[in-house]
Design a protein around this nucleic acid. Sequence first.
DNA 1: TAGATTGTTAATCGATTAACAATC
DNA 2: TAGATTGTTAATCGATTAACAATC
Lengths: 206, 206
Amino acid sequence: MAKPNIPDIVVSRLPLYLQTLNHLLREGEEVVSSDELSEKVGIPAVQIRKDLSFFGGFGVKGKGYDIIHLIDNLRSILNLNQIWPMVIVGVGNLGQALIRYQGFARQGFEIVLALDINPNIIGTEIAGIVVQDVETMDTALRSSDIRIALLTVPANAAQSTADALVAHGIKAILNYAPIILKLPEGVRVANIDPVLKLEHLTYYLS
Amino acid sequence: MAKPNIPDIVVSRLPLYLQTLNHLLREGEEVVSSDELSEKVGIPAVQIRKDLSFFGGFGVKGKGYDIIHLIDNLRSILNLNQIWPMVIVGVGNLGQALIRYQGFARQGFEIVLALDINPNIIGTEIAGIVVQDVETMDTALRSSDIRIALLTVPANAAQSTADALVAHGIKAILNYAPIILKLPEGVRVANIDPVLKLEHLTYYLS
DNA sequence: TAGATTGTTAATCGATTAACAATC
DNA sequence: TAGATTGTTAATCGATTAACAATC
């Protein structure tokens, strides 16, 4: 249902605006101008206004934006007015840390299923989640409404695991494995690879 | 000394090329055409050639690119012909997972110093690293050649911690805290925020 | 040589920014 | 009303892509 005509790069900035608006709200602010928001978020005011105008006119001329109102609208645009249940596959160091991370639930993303292949890890409980055998993916996912997966398996297992997840109805994957996944149209992938970011940084370190 | 005229977006793709070339090398390949690389990396062949041409002519017409030769060149461009020592500040769940993560060292990034504020964590050893009191940042960094920091402290401590790191000579920060850091010119920041990525993904989940 | 593929110039496309009218 | 600030149109800028000459 996402309007197909809105540039993805615009969409990618909305979560950033939302994050900053939430900060402002917590600080007790009620109204913010695009100039003030620009200062906080590090994006030109005119670009913020242009981005928002793709979705509607949320501001008041001469005043600025009502923070609560704008947050509501952004949450609605980004489909955040619901809890998103997630599966995590791969419960190693990183997987465990992500299961324990409070930041997901705080924003409405809840890890409800954890899968691993290692018999020593299967059956252990982490932050209230009992790790299941990855073999049970079929049954576990079939009876659920999970559409998002966190992929934290070793690189050499990532593609086949992703394929299996997609075969079982997963529509979005946050991929922590350092490889480029090939997936069918209609499945969204976002990659998190700190090494790539570091290599980008070192380019600028003389 | 990085040529200042090369678009950052071009630089940001080089690590991706390097990653894929390393895969190909491990698979025993010796030469790759921009078409084949394009297929693997998901970026148009013409764009790969254009990107590379900013730095030189690394290919052979009619043949393609010698993989080892291109890897060498990319590593040199990205300043990867050295070990980059790093400090990590914040040894919670995520920090511990990152200290244990093998992927950094494998690519020449080595966490050599871990700092935390929590007395229960200070003094503990993780993957061979003894966690130090963050109060010792001054002495620890002064006598080192560490220029890169991983920032894994809680959001409310991130800005002040980043300021302290910069005051002690850190030039690049990989920021895992869900806030936008304000730092002086000349300090590079890259952000890793899975929640922002998830919120971007859910836009497309009807 | 013919075929394949690079590297580069020029054209296109899309995103950012400037200018400003609208209006609270 | 005057001042502030949005939302939008038009101009600019920069990145991607197409076309193709060069050449291994």
